[in-house]
Nucleic acid binder design. Sequence first.
DNA 1: AAATGATCCAACCGCATTGGA
DNA 2: TTCCAATGCGGTTGGATCATT
Length: 233
Amino acid sequence: MASATEPPPPSPPGEQMEELRRGPWTVEEDLLLVQVVAEHGEGRWNARASHAGLKRSGKSCRLRWLNYLRPDVRRGNITAEEQLLILELHCRFGNRWSKIAQHLPGRTDNEIKNYWRTRVQKHAKQLRCDIDSKTFQDIVRFVWMPRLLERIHVDHDRTIGTSLITASEEHSNFTNPNSTVVQVRGDQRDDKVNTETTNGDFAIGYEEENWDIEQDGWTINDLLNEYKWDIEN
DNA sequence: AAATGATCCAACCGCATTGGA
DNA sequence: TTCCAATGCGGTTGGATCATT
């Protein structure tokens, strides 16, 4: 936390009264913050802010550091593995974002929260069910999570180059060799979802998914019942 | 090409908790 | 024990960007 060489106490009264800056951070501000944290470490954010000459609240500095400037912060798309972990952990911890973030190195609570709100809640909305409902929890458990597992499996095979079959074949065989259910679902969804790419692979990306199940004549119960039946047999 | 709507995400806000004086 | 500043956390907002019409 605080280093031996502490910055001087907060600025004089005149300066304290100065209006604090808000909104997006500039490159210059980022550099100042990085520099002051490198010199004095994290914590005591109000002192750090004034020491660096930043017209920002300590709170704002802390948030900027933790969510953006920290060297170990991981940026870019949430991977299938991470998605799966988030779904699992959310089952266990609920909206305890910081708790969930502890299990995803480099990901911030803010990022996970945003992921949940934008992607997961969107699906609940599309399915016209409450995100906290048993129905949606079942969909997550029995449909979404198996599909993520499947995707991880496919990606893994593709990466190590041992799979000679196409992802589309894999897609229908993985969860249950006797099952065609997942494949049927995939085929029935929007073109954007499981579009076959030029190399014959399936783009099963979550980002492209669009669960217009009811639009395709499938109700939530149809989906759950059939999928439950399928995994039980 | 312009207008409009949808989506994403950085940043803010308010409340709760912690820890030191 | 009480007070208060710092910190942590979850919810919310607003602007930028992308997609669609």
